[in-house]
Each structure stands twice: as C-alpha cells, then as structure tokens.
Amino acid sequence: MAVETGRSWQRHGTQRRIKRLLAALVATATVVGSWLWLELDLQYITSSPPELLDLAVRMYPPAWAYAPDIVMPLIETIHIAVVGTILAVMMSVPVAFLAARNTTPNDLTYALGKLIVTTSRSVHTIIWAMLFTVMFGPGAFAGMVAIAVRSIGFVGKLLGEEIEEISFDQVEAIKATGGSTFQVLLYGVIPQIKPALVGISIYRWDINVRGATILGVVGAGGIGVELFDAVDAFQWSNVAMILIAILGIVLLSEIVSARARAMTR
C-alpha cells in the first residue's frame, strides 16, 4: 500500500540520522579508549574467588569479644552525624534563600548562593575531612566540620528548589499586612517549606551516618579509625565485627529516617 500511494515515513531525517550515527561512534570510542588506557588486566578476576574465600576464612568467626571496645566509637560516629547535620541545616537555610530565584535579593547574591552550594557539593566528604584534620588536627571535630560543610550544599540545593516551588500568593498576603521582610519569610515562606526542611534534614542525617563511618580513613574520628587500625594490623576477625556493627547502625539510621520522614506530611 505504502509503495502504491508513494507514501513513506521515517522517524528521523537524513541529516539527523548521520548525527545519531556519529554520536554512537563517539560513545563507543570513548568506552574503548577508557578501557585501553586503564590497561585492565582480567587475570585478577580469575584469582579473586580464592582470595575472597581466604579473607572470609580469616574473618570468621567475628571477634564478638571485641564488641564492647567499639561501642564508644560507634556512638561517636552517630554524634558526628547528628551535630554535623544540625550545623549544616542551620547554615544552609540562609544559603537556600540566596540560591532560590524568588527569594534572592539580586543576581550577585544568587551567584553567591549557587557558588556555596556548588563548592560544598563538588568536594567529597573525605577530602573535606583531610583538609579539616590538617586545620584542626585529627579527631571527631574535624570529621564533624567535614560532614557539615559537605551537607550545606546538599541541603541548600534541595531546600532552595523547594523555596522556588512555594505559592507566592501566601507570601504576598503576609506582605500586604505590612510585615517586615523577616516576618514575611517567617510566616509566608517557612511554613510552606517546613515539611521539606525536616524531610531533607533527616535524609541527609541518614547519609551522614554512613559518611561518618568512613571518616576514620583520614583520622577524622568515628568507627572508621578502629576499622582502618584493624585492617592495618591484619586483625580480620575484628574487621568483621566492625563491619557488622556498621551495617547495624546504617540499617538503624535507615529505619529511623524512613519513619521520621513518613511522619512529616
């Protein structure tokens, strides 16, 4: 039929198809190039099952007797996450107002807000922790500051997006009563973003508990210090115990976070 009536249909025009073909070629070349550059040696894959088995044997049984020794570092880990998150939330609220198009005073403050968010987000917690252990010395304080600084960007960005979504009618009504700028934020904006603020904070706290477990790799406190000490000393059954403990608190924070966020509607 199509031939008889001379009608034909193509999803893309010729030019478009050439472009798509080129894009596919570039993508393939990128993957192949990266692979070759890394000189990946596949023979390690064949030797990995015995290595894994060997590690498992050395880890088993976990050193249950070691458990009391890691209670304090575990508690410290959670505290780092809690204090770091609270600090971050307090600092990120003003940042969010700067980084939201509808509340930022001008282009310059908008750029500043975005700059803070991007800087905070583009550096990994561990790298922040390295910087702060140099500044403040090793320990939980450096870890907590690292957690806080990394979280400002996360909370500030999500909260800023939430502020951009609010109903401006409600804000305008408060403005019409003659309230100050601060009061307009307090009554017109904050109530609208409160559920999001609570939700985002708890979500970030959950991420930060996981983040805090690994701060010890650069000496910034928490359970990670014990973990890397045990690895360095080849105390594999202690390592197993620590990993079980970490899994435990991560699960716990996950549950607390899910429950708490379900309550904020």
Partner: peptide
C-alpha cells in the same frame, strides 16, 4: 486586603 484565592498560609 482580601484575595480571590484567600491566600491563607495553608500550614
């Protein structure tokens, strides 16, 4: 001022 859509702070 009274508004068409009330403009109450809903929460």
């Amino acid at each position: 001022m009274v508004f068409q859509e009330y403009n109450l702070v809903e929460r």
